[in-house]
Computed example of a mutant assay.
Amino acid sequence: MSLKNSDIPHVFLHTGDAFIGVNPTIVSTVLGSCVAISMFSPRMKQGAICHAFLPSRKEINPDKQISIQICRYVDTAIDHLLACMLRIGTRKNELEVKIFGGASGLTLSKVRAPNSFAVGGRNIQMALDSLSAIGLHPKAMDTGGNVGRKILFATHSGDIWLKRLDKQTLLKTTCHLTNKK
């Protein structure tokens, strides 16, 4: 499928946002330590994706019940995506989940940040823990490391196109993750 000549609308997903694709859409985003989580229903041919940049709302403000930007946090973003997918008629047991991002070393420095600042790894772990808590497990992942990623998500097929970016944001590797068997 050529994305450049496609009549399918394209949307850029900003940090802290989510997109629920009830109509076919190509959603793109760029990730560093942030994570993108996608959920796709093969039966309904509809998908959703979020771009979260902090592990948990409770770490930042444990007393606050409602966040203005719910998808800025991995834990609440996953809950939000699942609720939206269920609302449009999907079943939890049919969802295909994929996780991307969570890079840890995007600086040129060889100095490592203390563990409490390793946001990329904490984002990945929170995604895995939050998904497991609701009985979901990722079908595919491309996480960690020290390179950024650009992804394109087709909401109507669940396909993901991934570009790994080096420190100069040059293309290192491209792969296409498809749901076709």
Rank of each mutant, 00 (worst) to 15 (best):
T169L: 11
R122E: 07
T143Q: 01
I151S: 03
V111C: 07
D7H: 04
I68C: 13
I134G: 03
I20T: 14
D63M: 05
D7T: 07
K150W: 00
S33D: 07
Q69I: 09
T15M: 10
I124E: 10
A154R: 04
V22D: 05
G148Q: 01
I49M: 10
A140T: 11
C84W: 03
S116N: 14
L13D: 12
L13N: 08
P42S: 00
G16A: 00
L177I: 14
G135L: 07
A118W: 10
S157P: 08
T178H: 11
R91V: 06
T174K: 14
A113V: 08
G21D: 06
A113M: 07
K139R: 15
G121L: 12
G102I: 06
K64Q: 03
C71Y: 00
G148M: 04
A133V: 03
K172I: 12
P55V: 04
N115P: 12
P9M: 04
G135Q: 05
K4Y: 01
S67E: 14
L3C: 04
P42V: 02
H137T: 09
Q46K: 12
I60S: 06
C71S: 05
I68G: 15
F100V: 01
K110G: 06
M1Y: 13
T178A: 09
F40H: 10
A18C: 14
C175Q: 09
N93Y: 12
V27H: 13
S157D: 05
H137E: 05
E96K: 15
V27Q: 11
L131T: 00
E94T: 03
A113Q: 13
W161H: 11
I151Y: 04
S109Y: 11
L13K: 12
S104E: 15
T90A: 08
